[in-house]
Design a protein around this nucleic acid. Structure first.
Lengths: 342, 342
DNA sequence: GTGAAAGCGCTAACAT
DNA sequence: ATGTTAGCGCTTTCAC
C-alpha cells in the first residue's frame, strides 16, 4: 500500500459539483451566504471524494487554529488527570482541539510555550509549571491569551484561575482544632509552586491565630508525589514522636502518609493520628482512605478558565490580568474526628 | 492591553538582517545550505523580534504538521494515563506535538478522526475505541498512518500493537491452578473491545484444558471501571457462594473486587479468595492491594507503535497491516497464594 | 551560497 | 447568491 501524494482540495470538489472553489469554501462555513440547494450538491460531491477542509490552510488565512495548548506537569497526580480530561472534553465539545504538553513539575514552561506558539494556538492553559514574565509578554504581543490554572506568578500580568488555597488550608486547621489537636505536621508539595505554599500558609496562620506555637507544626517536604511523601513520612514519623494531626497539601501525599501510619507503624486513623488532604481526587474518596479533604471545584474552574480565554471573540482585547479565586469546601470523611455537634 | 494583529514574519527578520526571505527560511531549516555567519546574523535578528517560524504556514507547503493525534477512551483507567503520558513525553522529545482526543469508551472514533484529519496530522494512535474500516481506508488514502494501541479490529487493514493478552490470561489461570483453585470468577471489561475478550479467552481456555468445567467459571460484567466492577461484585459475590479465585481483566476492576471482598464481606485476600488483575498500574502495586497481575510493557509498546508510524520517513509506503504482539510477564505479589516451590 | 518567484489550500474582499 | 482575485507565511525549485 503506497501513499497517495495529494488529497483532494476544494478545487476538486468544485469541479465535481460544477461550482466555483469559493462556493465550496462557503458550503463548509456556517452562516455564509449560499443557496441551500447548491450547498447540498457540494456536500454531496465532497462526500464522494472524502473531502474535508484543510484546517491548516484555513488557519493560515484566518489566523485562528482552533487549537488550545494545555501545559501540564507530570500526570502522576490524579488531580491533573481530572483537569486534563475535563478540559479535553469541554474543548472538544465546542469543536476545538487540544495540544497536550508536559513539562517537569516546577520546571519552566518557556521552551514548551515557544514550540506551541509556532502553531498559532488560540490560547494557552498552563497548570503546574513556572513561566517567565518575558514569556507572558511574548504571548501577549501576539495576542495569544494565556491563563494559569491553579497557580499565579507574582508580578506577572498573566491571568489565572485558582481555588481558594489559603481558605482551604484554614478549613483544615479549623477541623483539626475542633477535634482538639495540639501537635501538627504539614506535608509540603512542590517548593516552587504557589499552590502548596498558599495552602500551607492558610493552615499555619489559622493555627497560630488559635495560639499554637509555630514549633508545634512540623514541616515535611513531600515533593508533591506519593513516593516522595512516603519516603519523607517514613523518615519523619516515629511511634514515639507523633503529631496528632497531619495536613498534606494534596491528597496523593496524604494517602502516602496514611499508608505509612497504618501499614508501617500500625497506627489507626483518625483514632491515633488524624490526616487531611486537598483536592478530593477519586482514589482518596474510597476505602481504605475515605479522606477528609478540601474539594477543588474542577468543572467550575475549567469554565472560568475558558471564559477568561475568550476563545469565541478573539477581537476582545486581552483583559488586564484577572485573578479569579474560586471558593472551596471541606469534605468531611473518616480521617478527621468530627465533634458530634457538627 | 490590546492584541497586536500581525506577528513578525520571515520578511521582517529578513529586512532587519539585510538578507532575503528565503535565507531566513534556510536559517531555520537544519541541513540547508547557508553560510554560518549569515545564519547567525539571521538568528540574532530573529531573537530581537521574538520571531519563531510559523508551523502552520510551513505545514501547508511541506504537508507535514509534526502533529500526532492520540485518541483515547476516558482517562478513568490509570493504565491509559500512563500510556498517554509515555506517548507525550516520547513524542515531545523528538519535537512533535500531540493532539489529544477522547471518545467514550468503546464508541466509534470515526467522528473524532474526521476532525483530526483536517489538521494534516502525521499519524494517528488509537487506543480504546472502535474504528470503521471505511475510516481506516480514508486515512490510508491520505497517507496518514494509523496504529491501534492494544486492540485490533478484525478484518481491518490497520496495523496494531498489543501485548499478549491471551497469553497473559493463561498465566493467571496457571497461577490459580497452581494454588489449587477449583471454582473461578472472571470479571469482564468493555464487551466491544477485543482486549477484554482475549484476556478472558486465554484464562478460560487454560482452565478448560486443565479439566475445569466452564460452569465453574462465573462471568461478571464489570464494564471496565472501578464503579462498574464494584457494583457487579457486590451483587454477585456472597459469603455463601464464593469462587476461590477471581481474575479481573484489568487492575482497576480487580481493586474494586478486593474492596468488596475485604470491606463488605470481611474476607481475606488471598487466604479466603484469590484475586488477579492485568495491566500493572501503579496504584495496584501498593499497599493495601499488592496485586498479582500481568504487566503490560508500556514503554516497549510505545516504541513499537512509533516505529510502525514511521514518522521520520513519510515516503515509506505504509506497510501492509502488521499486528505486533508483545510478550507479557506475570508479576507475583500478594493476592495469589504462591506454591512454595516457585 | 543566495535571491526571485511560484505555489501549498484555503478565506475574504471585491465585483457582478 | 456567486465567481474572481489577492493574499496568509512559509518551502522549494530555479537561476545565478
Amino acid at each position: 500500500m503506497t501513499r497517495r501524494q495529494t488529497r483532494f482540495t476544494s478545487f476538486d470538489v468544485a469541479a465535481l459539483a460544477g461550482v466555483s472553489q469559493s462556493a465550496v469554501s462557503r458550503a463548509f462555513s456556517p452562516g455564509s451566504s449560499i443557496a441551500e440547494a447548491k450547498r447540498q450538491r457540494i456536500l454531496e460531491a465532497a462526500r464522494k471524494l472524502n473531502y474535508v477542509p484543510n484546517s491548516i490552510a484555513s488557519s493560515l488565512t484566518t489566523k485562528r487554529s482552533n487549537i488550545v495548548a494545555v501545559v501540564l506537569g507530570n500526570l502522576a497526580n490524579p488531580f491533573y488527570v481530572t483537569v486534563l480530561s475535563t478540559l479535553v472534553r469541554r474543548l472538544q465539545a465546542e469543536g476545538r482541539q487540544v495540544l497536550t504538553f508536559t513539562v517537569d513539575n516546577g520546571a519552566e514552561a518557556d521552551q514548551a510555550l515557544m514550540r506551541v506558539l509556532r502553531y498559532q494556538v488560540d490560547g494557552v492553559i498552563l497548570t503546574a509549571a513556572q513561566l517567565s514574565t518575558r514569556m507572558t509578554s511574548i504571548c501577549h504581543e501576539r495576542g495569544i491569551p494565556i491563563v494559569l490554572f491553579n497557580r499565579y506568578i507574582p508580578g506577572s500580568d498573566a491571568s489565572g484561575v485558582r481555588c481558594d488555597n489559603v481558605g482551604g488550608g484554614r478549613m483544615i486547621a479549623e477541623a483539626f482544632l475542633a477535634a482538639g489537636a495540639k501537635r501538627f505536621a504539614l506535608i509540603l508539595g512542590d517548593p516552587r509552586g504557589t499552590t502548596s505554599a498558599d495552602r500551607a500558609r492558610g493552615f499555619s496562620d489559622r493555627l497560630v491565630e488559635a495560639g499554637i506555637a509555630r514549633s508545634e507544626i512540623r514541616v515535611v517536604e513531600g515533593h508533591s508525589s506519593y513516593e516522595g511523601a512516603y519516603a519523607a513520612a517514613t523518615r519523619t514519623f516515629q511511634r514515639d514522636s507523633l503529631p496528632e494531626a497531619i495536613f498534606s497539601v494534596n491528597d496523593i501525599m496524604a494517602m502516602a502518609a496514611m499508608d505509612v501510619l497504618r501499614q508501617r507503624l500500625s497506627l489507626r486513623v483518625p483514632e491515633d493520628v488524624m490526616v487531611a488532604g486537598f483536592d478530593d481526587i477519586p482514589d482518596a474518596r474510597r476505602w481504605p482512605y475515605r479522606l477528609t479533604t478540601v474539594r477543588q471545584p474542577v468543572e467550575e474552574m475549567v469554565e472560568e478558565t475558558l471564559s477568561i480565554l475568550h476563545l469565541d471573540d478573539p477581537e476582545t482585547p486581552i483583559e488586564p490580568a484577572i485573578d479569579k479565586v474560586i471558593p472551596v469546601r471541606l469534605i468531611w470523611r473518616d480521617t478527621v474526628r468530627q465533634p458530634s455537634s457538627a
